[in-house]
């Protein structure tokens, strides 16, 4: 069902936890649909110096959270903003079709955390190209 990479990131997830003094926090999804991701960012000089996540959901939800946080750790914000769900899926050696929405959720969670950081700085996330689709975690909200 899942690739070895997905199982690796599910059983040994990287960056699990919280950052108490995070500079940006983003949460997407809801309990009704069975997936919630919360991402914490520590940002210094426009570089993501630390990232942690907490996820409620299936194996793919945990694995995509883990992989997405790995992909943005230590990266400048501009680069992190370019992270796509496709890149997360590729890095995990693929996901079953019914689980693609989990990767969308991971991308949205990171964008939501960055948007939170920018808003706190008094900046409009839209100017940075962040258009939060208000992902609810339900497949039908992003697969219109």
């Amino acid at each position: 069902m899942y690739s070895d990479k997905v199982m690796d990131h599910f059983t040994n997830p990287r960056n699990v936890g919280e950052i108490p003094d995070a500079d940006g926090v983003g949460e997407v999804g809801n309990e009704k649909c069975g997936d919630i991701m919360r991402i914490y960012l520590k940002i210094d000089n426009n570089v993501i110096t630390d990232v942690k996540f907490k996820t409620y959901g299936c194996g793919a939800a945990v694995a995509t959270s883990s992989m997405a946080t790995e992909l943005i750790k230590g990266k400048p914000l501009e680069e992190a903003l370019k992270l796509t769900n496709k890149a997360v899926v590729e890095a995990l050696d693929g996901l079953p079709p019914v689980k693609i929405h989990c990767s969308v959720l991971a991308e949205e969670a990171i964008k939501a955390a960055i948007a939170d950081y920018l808003t706190k700085k008094g900046l409009d996330p839209k100017l940075f190209g962040i258009d939060l689709k208000a992902c609810t975690g339900c497949c039908d909200s992003c697969h219109e």
């Binding site: 899942y2 199982m7 599910f10 059983t11 959901g57 299936c58 194996g59």
Partner: peptide
């Protein structure tokens, strides 16, 4: 507060 598929995968391991 946790989801069934995750539980099944962990148990399967």
């Amino acid at each position: 507060y946790i989801e069934g598929e995750s539980i099944l995968l962990m148990m399967d391991i």
